[in-house]
């Protein structure tokens, strides 16, 4: 097991390297260091000297990938790419182009992101599973049929409509919650209710349908028939057997996304002005703060890979037949 994990981590290194190179190339094809300097220095009275100074101070006055003028063993290291990459692998993200320490910012903004994403996931899971169970329980009735139709309808509505509508009705007309914003501690709850409700509702359509198929597959299996033949009622069958067995694919599916929850939700956060990592990323894109963007890309891929490893491990835990090799 430990050996397996170690190998996966080693395997992650070239992946991260690839991600790093890709993000580096993508952003430097469009943005020269000069552009970045001008972006940060503002509009008025920007002279060539000021641009040079900025580049020097932020370490962008080196060649991009290959330094011809440096001595032989420094040809690779005396470059922007090397200098800016080496920190990433040590998870030290350095200072953003606008001058703030990125790691500090990430540490701070992680919590708002999590406080939306985690409840949304858990509540969403509970709601989706119960809706799906209900559909299976009432199968072949008008209730199932209308629920399926409702699911498809819910699925076909753009998430933007949910957000705009939710903000308009619940925040503005009914005045039940603040329209947007965030606070620390327990007072954050009133800001979080609406985004969570919205993300749960917008996820019901596809989520409930997916779980329904999982349950239906399970229901048709032989052991369920046996259980029913034993004289168990329909509810007992569902809760004792079907739910238990269907939980395996559900949970392993959840494990994959768990680490990525840190990254936050781009749209939700910027609509509700919640200072999480999602809105952090969007802001960075809009202000072309390359250091932050690269840090977030890197963090995202680390978390993604972490999620993959977690899934593998969770398979071995729920299903002893699976062995990692």
């Amino acid at each position: 097991m430990i050996k397996y994990i170690l190998r996966r981590i080693l395997y992650a290194l070239p992946l991260l390297m690839g991600v790093n190179i890709l993000s580096f190339i993508l952003f430097f094809v469009v943005n020269s260091p000069d552009d970045m300097a001008r972006m940060q220095l503002g509009q008025k009275h920007v002279t060539e000297q000021a641009v040079q100074n900025w580049k020097h101070q932020h370490g962008y006055d080196l060649p991009l990938l290959w330094n011809d003028r440096a001595s032989s063993n420094k040809k690779m290291t005396e470059t922007i790419f090397y200098q800016k990459s080496i920190g990433l692998f040590l998870l030290d993200f350095g200072v953003s182009d606008s001058g703030r320490n990125i790691s500090e910012d990430i540490k701070q903004r992680m919590w708002p992101s999590l406080s939306i994403a985690l409840p949304s996931l858990i509540v969403g899971l509970l709601v989706n599973i119960s809706v799906a169970l209900m559909m299976v329980l009432f199968r072949n009735s008008y209730l199932e049929f209308s629920s399926i139709v409702l699911c498809v309808i819910l699925m076909s509505i753009s998430s933007l409509f949910y957000i705009i509508g939710g903000q308009f009705f619940i925040g503005k007309l009914l005045k039940l919650v603040p329209i947007s914003g965030y606070d620390t501690g327990f007072s954050a709850i009133k800001f979080l209710i609406l985004p969570i409700v919205i993300s749960v509702i917008s996820g019901i359509g596809s989520g409930a349908r997916w779980y329904r198929t999982l349950f239906l597959e399970e229901v048709e299996k032989d052991y369920v028939r046996t259980a029913r033949a034993k004289g168990l009622t329909e509810t007992q069958v569902l809760f004792k057997h079907v739910l238990k067995n269907a939980m395996i694919p559900i949970l392993t599916g959840v494990v994959v996304v768990l680490p990525l929850l840190f990254m936050g939700s781009l749209i939700m956060e910027s609509f509700f002005s919640i200072p999480g990592l999602g809105s952090y990323t969007i802001d960075a894109i809009n202000s072309q703060d390359f250091a932050i963007v690269r840090a977030m890309v890197f963090l995202g891929s680390v978390l993604y890979i972490f999620g993959l490893i977690l899934t593998d491990i969770s398979y071995t835990i729920v299903d002893p037949r699976v062995r990692l090799s």
Binding site: K175, K190, F191
Partner: peptide, 17 residues
């Protein structure tokens, strides 16, 4: 907690604590 943090129901939408 919600009830505690906003004792009066008139300003449930107050964004300040």
């Amino acid at each position: 907690n919600l009830l505690l943090s906003s004792c009066d129901l008139s300003q449930l939408n107050n964004p300040y604590s």
